[in-house]
Design a protein around this nucleic acid. Structure first.
Lengths: 123, 123
DNA sequence: AGTGTGTTCAACCGAAAGGTTGAACACGAC
DNA sequence: GTCGTGTTCAACCTTTCGGTTGAACACACT
């Protein structure tokens, strides 16, 4: 479940702690311990969060002596914005069309829209 | 937990079924039964999904006889794009600065970075 | 070698997700 | 009123999630 990357990315960012970690990583790479410091949880918990972010493709870890600096992979953001923008545009397009229809109506008609319009489409 | 709206929105869209429902709702409003039709789950399960989407502010339901047409509230998308774009920009800004630093280095210096630096390089 | 620091692995726990079935509710139609 | 349709509520089940503790691993330092 939640197999595809888009699901993993959304899911990863659904957690406030992980979102905060991502925010901090936009400023600088950091180690697990550094990342854990501000939060009131164990370092192991943060390590788990990082695994989630990593599996979503949002961060990568390199090896550097015994430290494992975490690096943000910001390109993954595009995955989300592409999805969001696509459907935002589709929704806006629909509203535009709807407005046109309503505007072209003699006043007071109040549509009675066609029995079962698009509904099926998608996918 | 997952109290804030941003978390709820990300969490709502982390599920492929819900994402698909949102996609379809960009084309037309739909009832619970219409939405449930393509999926291999009970109508109750879809009803639950809708509640999640509703609590995230992504959809609204009006009453229309015994039907409860579901309507997409696309403005909520802005919440996400605002967050994403903010940190994407921050990340890009950081890379830009980093590039400047590296470019201003006499060749071959290869830093020996200060005790516990930003760890940055890579990328 | 042995110690210390950073990180992960493993087992466990409680709460929440996502699904089910079965009953209830809301309303139009007859 | 009764019937049928659309929707939600309630209880339950299983899996996942976010957290814990305790042990192990990896490496630098002396």
């Amino acid at each position: 479940m939640a197999a595809d990357q888009l699901s993993r990315v959304f899911s990863a960012l659904a957690d406030p702690t992980r979102r905060d970690m991502v925010a901090r990583l936009t400023l600088a790479d950091a180690t697990v311990n550094e990342l854990a410091e501000p939060y009131d949880v164990t370092v192991q918990a943060v390590s788990k969060h990082l695994r989630v972010l990593e599996e979503a493709g949002l961060v990568s870890r390199s090896r550097e002596a015994q430290r494992r600096p975490v690096h943000l992979e910001a390109e993954v953001f595009d995955l989300m914005t592409t999805w969001i923008e696509r459907y935002r545009r589709q929704a806006e397009e629909r509203y535009r069309r709807l407005d046109d229809v309503l505007r072209s109506m003699p006043d007071g008609i109040e549509p009675t829209p066609p029995p079962r319009p698009e509904t099926g489409a998608s996918r």
